[in-house]
Computed example of a mutant assay.
Amino acid sequence: MKRKASTVTMCLMALISISLAGCVSGLIDRLSNNSPTIPANAATPTNTTTIDGYKRNLAQRIVAVNSTKVYIGRPQALLRAVIVLKFYIDADGQLLRTQIMRTNKDRAAEAVAMLSVKNAAPFPKPDRDLLRKGEIEISESWLFNTDGRFQLRSIADAQMDE
């Protein structure tokens, strides 16, 4: 009986420790600029009724999900690559397709940009007024520094001077 009680106590202590670690970790993430918080349910409708506002919401989502690949601060003066993607999202926030519109043939940067969109899906549901034929078309630019990390143009800081 005593052994059973100590096992239950140890399990409860482990659960409490895990719960507290998750709370502290989440708090640290929210307080840190380097690790934006990912919305719990990305497919919820957004309050944004403009394409630019919705595009900023998407950029924030992409950055949050791919935070380890994002450059914090001002992008360098001469960028390694600028990749422009066009992607389509349906009324439910599902990614339909993605295509490269501009590239300097940096295959690694292209792959990171494409994967960052895919990883961030599903997206917040777009406002119905933004949809054309049941989808919304978004173009976004990935600005890559020489270290391979990126910022998205719609939420990026101004580039450094040469």
Score class of each variant (00 low, 15 high):
residue 103 T to I: 07
residue 4 K to F: 14
residue 96 L to D: 15
residue 22 G to N: 11
residue 160 M to D: 04
residue 82 V to P: 00
residue 132 R to Q: 14
residue 17 S to Q: 06
residue 85 L to S: 10
residue 133 K to R: 14
residue 153 R to D: 12
residue 162 E to R: 13
residue 145 N to M: 07
residue 131 L to M: 09
residue 47 N to R: 15
residue 147 D to G: 00
residue 52 D to L: 07
residue 140 E to K: 03
residue 96 L to I: 14
residue 85 L to D: 07
residue 102 R to A: 13
residue 118 K to G: 03
residue 67 S to Q: 11
residue 17 S to I: 12
residue 71 Y to S: 11
residue 54 Y to I: 05
residue 129 D to C: 09
residue 143 L to S: 07
residue 109 A to R: 00
residue 144 F to P: 00
residue 37 T to D: 14
residue 46 T to M: 03
residue 129 D to M: 10
residue 92 D to Y: 07
residue 70 V to Q: 02
residue 20 L to Q: 08
residue 53 G to Y: 02
residue 154 S to W: 01
residue 76 Q to W: 06
residue 151 Q to S: 06
residue 22 G to S: 09
residue 140 E to I: 08
residue 75 P to R: 01
residue 30 R to V: 01
residue 33 N to F: 12
residue 38 I to P: 07
residue 142 W to H: 13
residue 161 D to F: 14
residue 5 A to L: 14
residue 94 Q to L: 04
residue 95 L to A: 03
residue 53 G to S: 07
residue 157 D to N: 10
residue 134 G to C: 08
residue 26 G to C: 05
residue 78 L to I: 10
residue 104 N to S: 13
residue 130 L to S: 06
residue 118 K to W: 02
residue 25 S to Q: 08
residue 146 T to S: 12
residue 100 I to H: 07
residue 66 N to G: 02
residue 14 A to Y: 13
residue 150 F to E: 01
residue 99 Q to T: 15
residue 157 D to C: 00
residue 109 A to K: 00
residue 134 G to Y: 11
residue 111 A to L: 15
residue 88 Y to L: 06
residue 63 V to A: 05
residue 14 A to H: 08
residue 148 G to N: 06
residue 151 Q to K: 11
residue 82 V to E: 10
residue 42 A to R: 15
residue 141 S to K: 14
residue 39 P to M: 08
residue 61 R to F: 05
residue 34 N to H: 13
residue 65 V to G: 00
residue 34 N to C: 07
residue 93 G to S: 03
residue 73 G to S: 10
residue 20 L to V: 10
residue 44 T to G: 09
residue 149 R to W: 04
residue 79 L to K: 01
residue 58 L to M: 06
residue 35 S to H: 15
residue 122 P to L: 02
residue 76 Q to Y: 12
residue 159 Q to V: 12
residue 77 A to N: 03
residue 64 A to D: 08
residue 5 A to H: 12
residue 56 R to M: 06
residue 29 D to E: 12
residue 95 L to F: 08
residue 15 L to V: 10
residue 57 N to P: 04
residue 105 K to L: 11
residue 28 I to N: 07
residue 85 L to P: 05
residue 79 L to V: 01
residue 138 I to H: 05
residue 114 M to W: 14
residue 141 S to P: 00
residue 117 V to C: 06
residue 35 S to L: 15
residue 64 A to S: 12
residue 122 P to I: 03
residue 39 P to N: 08
residue 157 D to W: 08
residue 33 N to R: 15
residue 32 S to N: 13
residue 120 A to P: 00
residue 96 L to K: 15
residue 16 I to K: 03
residue 140 E to W: 02
